[in-house]
Design a protein around this nucleic acid. Structure first.
Length: 264
DNA sequence: CTGGGGAGGGGGCCC
DNA sequence: GGGGCCCCCTCCCCA
């Protein structure tokens, strides 16, 4: 089951934002000195600057989750001590996008969303989060909001995805507004740690080493995937032929190309 | 076609 | 309640 069960996603062609749009963005959102964490700035450009097409849905919601995809037992392959990555928490507050400050207009803090008044939420929330879609009817009227039977729903203005919590929506909106901008190439990211991972592509830093071979990776997830290659029994198994794969995508490919059915 | 690396996104958990 | 971190997943590309 996808971890994103909280969100109803619409079918979209691609997930990636249109980074090319960034090149046209105002210089005030770019930074000149890369590699220094102090410069992993979380610029907060208006969404329309970062991604004028933000209103376009950008997700493909995979309907491909193969019912046969089934993680099998996976003894931990992680080395006893995985090298600690660069201090992910060392971004300065003003730089890291900490606080998930919404992009753009100087406006009331997001905390204003905690207001229990739907009307004030709407008024203040929209100022702080341009990506917020129209308030659901349940929240537009206090009576509806108080109705335990009515499910609160928060819709993203950009893609109309529906979230069950405001926090989830706020996090999602960052994927549209992309407040964290790489000082080297101008790419923008929704979260500071994503930017940090990206910066490693510029620096070549690979803090995650494989304990089984000499390879190192910039990303922990990629190391984890790599560790699968050292395992005889991979994590994902085809129920038809019992063949195992290191990645779900490989299992999908295997099944889509027509599993022969026989064990390998 | 398959396997694997690189890069990135999303949501949950925990502090 | 918010933010950082982690895990899982996907896509692209290449050998």
């Amino acid at each position: 089951m996808p971890r994103s069960f909280l969100v109803r996603k619409s079918a979209c062609p691609r997930r990636r934002p249109n980074y090319s749009e960034l090149h046209d963005s105002s210089p005030e959102f770019t930074f000149q000195q890369p590699y220094d964490q102090a410069h992993l700035l979380a610029a907060i450009p208006p969404p329309e600057v970062l991604n004028p097409t933000a209103s376009l849905p950008t997700l493909i919601w995979d309907s491909l989750l193969a019912p046969q995809a089934q993680p099998i037992g996976w003894p931990s392959l992680l080395p006893p001590e995985v090298p600690k990555a660069v201090e992910l928490t060392s971004l300065s507050d003003e730089d890291s996008g900490k606080g998930s400050q919404p992009p753009s207009p100087p406006s009331p803090a997001p905390s204003s969303f905690s207001s229990t008044s739907a009307s004030s939420l709407e008024a203040e929330g929209y100022a702080a989060f341009p990506g917020l879609g129209p308030l659901p009817k349940q929240l537009s009227g206090l009576a509806g909001a108080k109705d335990p039977q009515s499910r609160k729903a928060f819709n993203c203005k950009y893609c109309n995805k529906e979230y069950v919590s405001l926090g989830a929506l706020k996090m999602h909106i960052r994927s549209h507004t992309l407040p964290c901008v790489c000082g080297t190439c101008g790419k923008a990211f929704s979260r500071p740690w994503l930017l940090q991972g990206h910066v490693r592509t510029h620096t070549g830093e690979k803090p995650f080493s494989c304990s089984h071979c000499s390879r190192a990776f910039a990303d922990r997830s990629n190391l984890r995937a790599h560790l699968q290659t050292h395992s005889d029994v991979k994590k994902y198994q085809c129920k038809t032929c019992s063949r195992t794969f290191s990645r779900m995508s490989l299992l999908h490919k295997h099944q889509e190309s027509g599993c022969s059915g026989g064990p390998r």
